[in-house]
């Protein structure tokens, strides 16, 4: 697979106004993100997840090492606008990302800044609102949208810039269950149509949709692999302060109590099947 983002020996520390340089937020990060990949990034608070996200589109520049996005080095100031067009970001709080007074204006904001001709702008607005399922709401005020709709609007604004990669930084954590589902569907749709999706999340259920999961702790990559592999190692999962899916937690608890339940179960259906067999055999 072709790489879209490459990080080589990346370290980052914040400059504090009074106390000078902080401790390393990230150190020694080596990572290749492939074109079209769906990658989930997990880790406890303060592990460096959001710092990583901001490094990927040049909002932060590495203190050491380098990041190359589709052939462009983020340390090169001249290429930064191009890097930011390639890597779009969707943040946590929907209300902080809305600038327009109508849905249409809000989507247009990024394109206006990039000097895209009006005719093309109108086409792209129609196209991206269609993709996130907000067509028909062009003239609505963003403040009257639900949380899930606001996040989809933020996604539409990012998509209008035709990015290669979209980074979701805990983009579902402030939404109700219905809103979360809407955003996850939009994410899935992006992945299906070939956009690279990087999803930073605390939710194991959400990370399960990804192809690869990466765990950060103390500014370092501690583990990477498929979601299924991850939940076979439940001890580490607890150490990294991740939440395991209910089925996995229940399986571990039943095993500890001496019930003959297989170690490699990760899904609800498998577990239901096993428990049913166990309880009806008696």
């Amino acid at each position: 697979m072709e790489p879209i983002i490459q990080l080589d020996g990346v370290g980052f520390r914040y400059e504090l106004p009074r106390e000078g340089k902080s401790d390393w937020s990230l150190r020694g990060i080596r990572l290749t993100v492939h074109r079209g990949e769906h990658l989930a990034v997990m880790g406890p608070n303060g592990s460096g997840k959001s710092t990583l996200a901001k490094l990927l589109n040049g909002l932060l520049i590495p203190s050491e090492g380098c990041i190359v996005v589709d052939g462009l080095d983020t340390r090169d100031g001249k290429t930064l606008p191009a890097v930011r067009r390639k890597v779009g970001m969707v943040f946590q709080n929907p209300d902080n990302q809305i600038v327009g007074t109508t849905v249409k204006d809000d989507v247009a904001f990024g394109m206006e800044n990039a000097g895209i001709p009006r005719k093309e702008m109108l086409e792209r607005i129609r196209e991206v609102l269609d993709r996130v399922g907000l067509n028909g709401l062009e003239a609505s005020s963003p403040h009257h949208l639900s949380g899930g709709q606001k996040q989809r609007l933020a996604i539409a604004g990012v998509l209008a810039m035709r990015p290669e990669v979209v980074v979701f930084d805990e983009a579902t954590s402030m939404l109700d269950p219905a809103g979360r589902k809407e955003v996850l569907q939009a994410m899935e749709e992006l992945h299906r149509t070939g956009t690279t999706v990087i999803h930073i999340t605390h939710s194991v259920r959400e990370a399960f949709c990804a192809e690869r999961v990466l765990i950060l702790e103390n500014g370092k990559i501690q583990w990477q692999g498929s979601p299924r592999e991850l939940f076979l190692q439940s001890e580490e999962v607890c150490r990294w302060s991740l939440e395991v899916p209910l089925a996995v937690e229940l399986k571990n608890r039943l095993r500890e109590r001496g019930l003959p339940v297989r170690q490699d179960i990760v899904g609800t259906e498998e577990l239901v099947e096993t428990i049913w067999t166990l309880l009806s055999r008696n």
Partner: peptide, 29 residues
């Protein structure tokens, strides 16, 4: 949700009032 899936097959069913993983563990054990 897990209790509901189990109860589709299990006879007699588990009580519906199991809300946490601890409740489930105790009932199954």
């Amino acid at each position: 949700r897990l209790v509901r899936c189990l109860n589709e097959r299990l006879n007699p069913p588990l009580p519906e009032s199991l809300l946490t993983v601890e409740d489930l563990e105790e009932a199954i054990v």
